[in-house]
Computed example of a mutant assay.
Amino acid sequence: MTTTPAPDRDDEPVRHRVGARLASPRRDERAEAWAGKLWTSVRAADEYTALDVVGDALENGLDAETVLLEVVGAVQHKVGIEWAANRMSVAEEHAATAINDRVIAALSADRPATFQGRVTVACVDKEWHALPARLLAETLRLRGWQVGYLGAQVPTAHLVSHIHRTGADAVCLSAALSTRLPMAHAAITAVQAVGTPVMVGGLAFGTDGRYARQLGADAWAPEARAAADRLAAGPLPRPRAPHRAGDDLPHLSDQEYTLVTQTSRTLVRETLRGLEQRFPALRDYDDDQRERTAEDLAHIVEFLAAALYVDDEELFTHFLTWTGEILTARRVPAHSLLPALDLLEEQLRDFPRARGIIAAGRDTLAAHR
Rank of each mutant, 00 (worst) to 15 (best):
287 D>W: 10
206 G>Y: 02
366 A>L: 15
248 D>T: 14
151 G>N: 11
339 P>C: 10
329 A>T: 05
171 V>P: 06
278 R>K: 10
62 L>M: 05
341 L>P: 00
28 D>G: 07
246 G>I: 12
152 A>P: 13
221 A>D: 07
225 R>E: 15
186 A>K: 11
234 G>E: 12
12 E>G: 14
177 L>M: 15
96 A>S: 12
38 L>D: 00
117 G>R: 03
191 V>K: 02
34 W>M: 01
324 G>V: 02
244 R>K: 11
150 L>G: 08
65 E>F: 02
195 G>E: 11
275 L>K: 03
255 Q>W: 14
176 A>S: 15
62 L>H: 03
268 V>T: 10
17 R>H: 13
48 Y>E: 15
211 Y>N: 06
247 D>Y: 07
57 A>Y: 01
65 E>H: 03
63 D>Q: 03
5 P>I: 02
367 A>T: 11
79 V>N: 00
50 A>H: 04
332 V>D: 03
241 A>G: 09
75 V>W: 00
146 Q>P: 04
98 A>Q: 10
160 V>H: 09
215 L>I: 06
242 P>T: 04
235 P>V: 11
339 P>K: 01
307 A>C: 12
350 D>L: 14
40 T>H: 00
358 I>T: 08
287 D>C: 09
121 V>R: 01
219 A>M: 05
366 A>T: 15
19 G>Q: 02
103 V>Y: 00
19 G>W: 01
257 Y>V: 07
278 R>P: 05
67 V>F: 04
128 W>Q: 13
109 A>F: 14
11 D>F: 11
287 D>N: 13
113 A>N: 05
364 T>P: 04
121 V>Y: 02
135 L>S: 07
272 L>A: 15
353 R>M: 09
202 G>V: 06
181 L>R: 05
202 G>Q: 05
29 E>G: 09
260 V>H: 01
232 A>P: 06
144 G>A: 10
118 R>Y: 11
225 R>K: 08
201 G>V: 05
76 Q>G: 00
30 R>G: 08
294 A>Q: 11
6 A>K: 06
139 T>A: 13
189 T>F: 06
92 E>C: 05
359 A>C: 08
367 A>V: 10
311 D>Y: 08
184 A>I: 10
74 A>W: 00
237 P>K: 10
33 A>G: 09
140 L>Y: 03
312 D>Q: 02
198 V>E: 02
84 A>V: 01
216 G>H: 09
354 A>T: 09
225 R>N: 12
305 A>I: 07
22 L>C: 11
269 R>E: 15
362 R>F: 07
316 F>A: 01
275 L>T: 07
